[in-house]
Design a binder for these strands. Structure first.
Lengths: 268, 268
DNA sequence: GCAAAAGTGTTAACAGTACACCCATGT
DNA sequence: ACATGGGTGTACTGTTAACACTTTTGC
């Protein structure tokens, strides 16, 4: 490697983060439970390029930090959210992906329990909905005032994420940069990670009912699960506590905790 | 994102690649088959730092290419090997990981059928052996003249790969940089990828016997498999051809092909 | 009582494991 | 013939999926 690192041109390196949560939806009556919805954390851009469009939180790396540390710091600064650890999603480096110049993006993903309180004014949770039809995905993000941002994404190859090179082609009600692909890719990883319940545990308080846990699964997978089978599947990972949760118009439920496991604070 | 990309310091970005193959070992007699061995492609360094030590092939990114394209080009230049597609392994960015300065490494992995012919003089296949004892790994790499390079690796967290910051601590018969951790991490990914046989298919010719396929699995997983069970497991992925392979001192075997599948040339 | 949700049981299908057995070939 | 590897059957086990059923609460 005959290379003088000061001699050649270097890229700017950015870190972007896809943060998912599951929020309680509106409950419909005193008897029905509320259905939780999967949401992703986005920031309204205030500058060129993609001004006024939603984008993933992120920022540029600096010398004193690892990329993960940069990602977590930017997340804290822009949204007030603090949520290690991160998992690596992809690196995007295609020419023209950022009109500001040669910028490589390292993209990470994680989940966090819903804490609306600390959000910065530009940051907001967007409800996530993903539809698939023969290899192509339609990602629909909805903000709290009901505005929809729709992106068509085709993932030929997870290592070749990109959509457009010219900014002009991007519809106004869409996402900044190539962030829609990142979100789709992250959601697919989140779903496959649910083979083990560790990600779901991070979306719930210390003690939870098995129905809570199942609803987290259902919100992420976007399909109904059969209760008896679900309980058998996650039984090895949870532990009964002495607590019960009552007060609703039906039989009260036992509270559970996750079993102590080594894979607890490791990436998903 | 109030950022003028020319104003701030930028890192050098390198791509490193872990390329695995499975090579035929020496056959012991006319009756016994030869046992294939798992190997990784390394390059002897010719300069400071880590001069004369084996390292993963790789190099620095430049403006006209994606990181994956850089990785593939460097691989071609340094070893003569041409093998898309790559899968992302990890990004290493810890301070002090490279004594030349602020250098981020994007690490990829792949597998390729063994073609010794084209190797550059500095590039060589090293036999891989991995031992585990309570969370710590010992990686032993052996070159063709029998020289061993031994590294102790502890993977607390796949996102926090690193071993040393000071070059002085590295034993002479070890690997350059943090490349030992990369190889261990890549091997673990390769192993778990064998739930589906796509990686194994790339290590074999178009037509192969089921024993060939099983031996690839055994070389990578480093354990014996039961033939009847293995054949049932991979049956949905292979197709019988009309060819047979005879000539040895035992019953000849049928040749198979992989079934056409969408996931064929996609990352592993 | 009744609606709604908590929680358990039962069955059939399927996949994973270990082992035993027969087949075909070159020397 | 016989050693060697190719190839198949079988019995046991555990997991998954679908569905039916019982239990407990607030109104």
């Amino acid at each position: 490697m005959d290379y003088d690192i000061t001699k050649y041109d270097r890229p700017s390196v950015a870190a972007d983060i896809v943060v998912f949560t599951v929020r309680k939806g509106d409950s419909e009556s005193y008897r029905h439970l509320s259905k939780p919805v999967l949401s992703v954390l986005l920031v309204r851009r205030t500058e060129w390029p993609f001004e006024d469009m939603p984008a993933l939180p992120g920022g540029f790396c600096c010398r004193e930090e690892t990329i993960e540390e940069t990602a977590l710091r930017k997340l804290r600064e822009k949204t007030g959210v603090d949520c290690p650890p991160l998992s690596l999603l992809c690196n995007l480096s295609k020419q023209g992906r950022d009109p500001r110049g040669w910028i490589i993006s390292c993209c990470y993903w994680t989940v966090i329990g819903h804490t609306n309180a600390a959000l910065d004014k530009n940051a907001e949770w967007y409800e996530v909905s993903l539809k698939e039809s023969d290899g192509a995905y339609t990602l629909i993000l909805t903000d709290d005032s009901g505005r929809e941002f729709i992106s068509e994404v085709r993932l030929n190859n997870p290592n070749e994420l990109y959509n457009q090179s010219a900014e002009a082609e991007i519809p106004r009600n869409s996402l900044a940069f190539d962030h829609a692909e990142m979100i789709v890719n992250a959601l697919l990883k989140l779903r496959s990670s649910l083979e083990k319940p560790y990600a779901a545990f991070r979306l719930l308080p210390e003690r939870f009912t098995l129905t809570d846990l199942q609803q987290v699964y259902e919100a992420i997978l976007d399909k109904k699960l059969i209760m008896a089978n679900f309980r058998r599947k996650i039984a090895p990972y949870v532990e009964e506590t002495d607590g019960i949760e009552g007060g609703a118009g039906h039989r009260p439920s036992k509270l559970f905790t996750r079993k102590a496991a080594a894979a607890d604070s490791s990436p998903l």
